[in-house]
Design a protein around this nucleic acid. Structure first.
Lengths: 95, 95
DNA sequence: ATAAGTGTTAATTAACAGGCTACAATTTTT
DNA sequence: AAAAATTGTAGCCTGTTAATTAACACTTAT
């Protein structure tokens, strides 16, 4: 199945969840990670890891699956853009 | 949210999708990866990547999300077992 | 003008996917 | 039965990437 549109990077979505005017430094402190790490995520220079998803969900009161799911969709879309081998569906001897 | 039970590693699930008696070598050939790589996945020595999920879905006629979703759940459960920092939910000035 | 703070890049470390080689164990062939 | 081929996994190596700290350019406050 191919995704029609380039899904947003989770970091881009995360931006919208940060309160207007909150600095990267403040958010990083709340998440107990370095501001460098958060900056990279926000600028799509790094993805959402399971540990990061847990932190985000605790802080923003969402599910970790939401964040990891976004990352998954992004990873999948990226992989789909790469040249891929032709794989013949398995033959299961239906009858 | 905590997952009650240790989810199966995707490689464990993959085992059940392989036709009875099919060798790792044959399956790897169909997936166009090395038998070493497939062996590692089956033995939970490596996870499912986006590229792997695309191969599996093409071969087994499933969705890539199914495989990546399993990996996500597994990763999350692993991360939840680790010691985690206490993160206070953001205060959004509700009123 | 100095000092403190902000966001990003650079450099380093750790973890991990994937490949190839090697090897023990099994299976097949002769 | 002996030899040859095949199978699955462990070891080693490479490339990628998440995370940290240090360093940087830039802004704001004193």
């Amino acid at each position: 199945m191919s995704r029609m549109y380039n899904p947003a990077h989770p970091g881009e979505v995360l931006r919208e969840w940060l309160p207007e005017g909150m600095t990267v430094t403040e958010a990083a402190k709340a998440l107990q990670i370095s501001r460098v790490t958060l900056s990279k995520v926000l600028n799509a220079k790094a993805g959402i890891t399971a540990g990061m998803a847990l932190r985000l969900s605790a802080w923003l009161e969402t599910t970790p699956d939401m964040w990891l799911g976004m990352q998954t969709q992004w990873d999948l879309w990226q992989a789909e853009q790469q040249p891929r081998p032709t794989i013949k569906p398995i033959d299961r001897q239906v009858a």
